[in-house]
Structure formats: C-alpha cells, structure tokens
Amino acid sequence: MIEQILNIQNLSKSYGSIKALNQLNLTVNRGEIFGILGPNGSGKTTTLGIILGVTLPNSGSCTWFGEKPSAYLRTRIGAVLEQPNFYPHLTARQNLRVVARIKGVPHSDIMRVLAIVGLEHRADHRFKTFSYGMKQRLAIGAALLGDPQVLILDEPTNGLDPQGIAEIRELVIRIASRGITIIMASHLLDEVQKVCTNVAVLRTGKLIYTGPVDDMVGETTRLELVAPDMTALHAAISELDGLNEITVTGGRLVANFNHKVDPAAVNKALAEKGIYLSHLARQHRSLESQFLELLSNPEKTKA
C-alpha cells in the first residue's frame, strides 16, 4: 500500500507583492526520492521552509504522515535548509549533542552519523574550522540523527567541488537504499535525473509538472540507424508510420517519430525488407530539453 509521507494542499505565500508560492499541491509517498526542481526564485526553499515550520504560509496547509505538522513530528524528520546552521564555537560533537537533545536521540548515535558522513576524525574540532564541504556533510550527519523517516535536503551540492558533489550524491542514494524517503530541492536537472525517482517542477511559485522522473524523461521518439545500404534504409524508414523527419549526419541516419517507437519492431520491419542494421540506438530526449519545454509551456501540466 502506498503510504503518504507529505501532503501539501493549496499552499500560497507572498513576500510583499511577490508571489513566492501560488496554490501549490504536492504529495510525497514513502520510499520516493522526490526532487523539487526549478530555477532560483521558483519557490523551492519557501516550500521547504513552510513544511518545516520556519516560514509561515498565507494560506493552504500540509500534513506529515497524515497528521497536522507539529514540533514533535519534526523530530522524525531530518532536514538541511539552505546553508548548514551550527554554533561556530562548538565542536562537531557538541553541536550534534544540541541536535540530539532536541530530537530526543541518545548521544551514542552521534559517532554513528559522523562515521556515515566521514567526519569521525574531526568530531572534536570546532565548527568554524571546517571547510564548506565538511560543514555540508556535518549538516547531513545532523539530519541523520535518530534515523529519521524523511530526509530533506536543499541544494545539497551547492558550493561543493566535483568530488564533494559525487560524494553527496552517492551518500543520498545510499541513504535512500535504506528505505528513508528523501525530499530534495535542486536547480540542477542533471542532479535530479541522476538521483531522484519523482520530481515536481516549479516555476515562479507554480507547480508545472509532477510525476516520476522516468515519465518526464519521456518516451523514445528518436532512433539512430546505420545499414550497409543507406539508400535502401532511407527508403524503408520513410514508409514507417508516424515518421516526422529524417536527417543524415556523419553517415548515420536519425529518424524522428511523432509517437513512441519500439526499436525491436522497427528492426523486424527492416529485416523483413532485407535490410540488416549494423547500428541501432535509441536517443532519449534529455531531461534538460524536457525541463526547458515545461518552463516555456505552462499549459502542459500533469497532476
């Protein structure tokens, strides 16, 4: 049975005349790695701020685990919003003691999470001596205290070097594999595509798409083909149903279709005509082109 973790209903928030969020509706289910994708200023952090109780909405509501949000429910959620927030004069361990006490988690859990984020050797160093990557990792470690059911990350790879980015992404996938639901805000398509299972796309505070990442990546509508007899191939392809356009580049033929196309069926049809392919590949439309398309075409919404 699908278990609802988070449900957002008609959430709106304005800062002065700027509408940061406009009638947002979202549902996150258990086990998903849910990406909230959108350019800067699209309302991602505002959304996370509201569901975590630090930003007050103008209207609308949300539920966690089917209940009204409360301080107690937040102890079951681990979250990092924007930058890592800690007491600079305290060590990593002392900072995590504060968090552990708030969450009602025993101190023995502190070394466990420090090990997960690879900071056990820096446990007794002051937070202000940490590099940005280490601060970010400590924040994720703090969020993991007490084994939360949900982990919320806001631009988790922002400001990190390539190695740091790879480490964080690997960490997120590893955490998700233990059954923790993850909600992640990002303006990086590539990040969402690599890490998330589900996605919501926001633009200027409005939801313009929500669904599985795979659906958004879309269906195969492009095939790349090579055959010994390119002229015969061109002619055979031209007769196929729903063909949109054929282009030949670098000795390869690229066929664009109007609808989903099954490469196996195409191969079979060509073989029946005595054309044997030496190369057949499907071309995914990248998430980026989908994303740009969604952003430029507000009518294409899918609930």
């Binding site: 975590l52 109780g53 630090v54 409360s70 301080a71 107690y72 937040r74 102890t75 959620i77 979250a79 919003l81 930058q83 927030n85 800690f86 007491y87 600079p88 504060v98 968090v99 708030i102 969450k103 009602g104 703090a142």
Partner: peptide
C-alpha cells in the same frame, strides 16, 4: 541574537523545538 546570526533558531525549529519552546 546569536541564534539569529548563526541561524540556529531556524535549525532548532527544524530539528523539533516549537517556537514557544
């Protein structure tokens, strides 16, 4: 004011304290 400078007031609430607490 440190709680605001370090933005820990925000983190404390996120971690599970209520505003009244």
């Amino acid at each position: 004011t440190n709680e605001y400078t370090f933005r820990t007031v925000r983190q404390n609430v996120i971690d599970g304290l209520s505003r009244d607490q």
